[in-house]
């Protein structure tokens, strides 16, 4: 997919591609958790890995970290083949990882947990990170809320200043303020040259922070797109409640798809710009309006069909 020229210097070759998956496949009996997934993540980008829960995102991540072995295909992470255990172990000094479910030693305090990871790979950025994300370090982890655990996880993932950080649903459990803070932090890291692999099932946050996105569904990669293309395809779920019934033809614009009218309520997916939508709505007697992120599954159905996943983009 992403052909590298043989003439390129080895260093720059390695610099350009941080992660490369080549037909990576993982089967559990009859279940195919990852089906010949291929894509590359370039250095210095935030790569979104988007898919509904159970699509196989965590499987890909665990394959990349060597926690599970591929059934077929292979992948490189920071130049190390994931089937070469020794090489992969070495490059892990430059990898940060925030798992979806955080297994900390529950009886230790947050401070002790960070000390433990610091002994294995350093903590030169610990103080700086703790200014942004501040879990109660003096308390045992078993008393932590979801959000506090997630913050502790973020600190441990970044504190050794890794080149590549793999985040699996990093905002789950974080309050909106902390989510914004994380998003801004990730953008700063990207600008500083770090590579972020960002797995999520939330379309809007991927749209917000990622540069490119791979979409996975039922274990297969269905699309690999620049974020601008995805933004066009994304759209919003809109529900408008009008003061009186309206003629659907008069109300509908080309940017609206899947329009459903029931009495005085119109539901549709809006694929245009927010300004245009608001400008359009003020011409009607609107009692109430709801604008929300569409369900990921709906988007998949719209854009990638319901049947066999095939690569686009």
């Amino acid at each position: 997919m992403c052909a590298q020229t043989e003439t390129a210097e080895i260093d720059s070759d390695r610099d350009a591609t941080t992660i490369r998956l080549d037909d990576l496949t993982k089967r559990y009996g009859n279940v195919t958790a990852n089906d010949a997934v291929s894509f590359s993540v370039d250095a210095g980008e935030i790569f979104g890995y988007l898919g509904p829960n159970g699509a196989g995102k965590t499987t890909t991540i665990r394959l990349l970290l060597g926690l599970i072995k591929p059934t077929a295909g292979t992948a490189d992470v920071l130049g190390a083949d994931i089937t070469d255990r020794r090489a992969l172990t070495e490059v892990k000094a430059d990898i940060g990882y925030l798992p979806d479910s955080l297994g900390f030693e529950e009886r230790l305090t947050g401070q002790q947990v960070l000390d433990y990871f610091a002994r294995m790979r350093g903590d030169e950025r610990r103080a700086e990170l703790l200014e942004l994300f501040h879990p109660p370090l003096e308390k045992p982890v078993e008393t932590y809320s979801h959000g506090n655990k997630r913050m502790l996880g973020i600190v441990q993932a970044f504190m050794h200043d890794p080149e590549l950080v793999i985040l699996d649903e990093p905002t789950s459990g974080l309050d909106p303020l902390k989510q914004d803070r994380l998003h801004a932090f990730l953008e700063d890291e990207r600008d500083a040259g770090k590579t972020i692999f960002f797995s999520s099932h939330v379309l809007s946050e991927v749209q917000r922070v990622c540069d490119r996105v791979g979409i996975i569904r039922d274990g297969g990669l269905v699309a690999l797109e620049d974020i601008d293309d995805l933004l066009e395809r994304g759209g919003k779920d809109v529900r408008v409640h009008l003061a009186e019934p309206v003629d659907e033809k008069r109300f509908t614009t080309p940017a609206m798809i899947d329009v459903e009218t029931v009495d005085r309520t119109v539901r549709f997916t809006y694929t245009g710009e927010a300004n245009a939508l608001l400008g359009h709505l003020v011409r009607f007697d609107v009692e109430d309006v709801e604008i929300a992120d569409p369900q990921l599954d709906d988007i998949f159905k719209h854009y990638y069909g319901d049947s066999t996943p095939g690569e686009t983009g």
């Binding site: 970290l65 020794r86 172990t89 892990k92 990882y97 297994g103 990871f117 294995m120």
Partner: peptide, 17 residues
């Protein structure tokens, strides 16, 4: 450690099995 996913974090460090 495998069951409560502690092993995932442990093995994300530069440490061999």
């Amino acid at each position: 450690d495998v069951q409560d996913r502690k092993m995932d974090l442990t093995l994300s460090n530069p440490v061999s099995r």
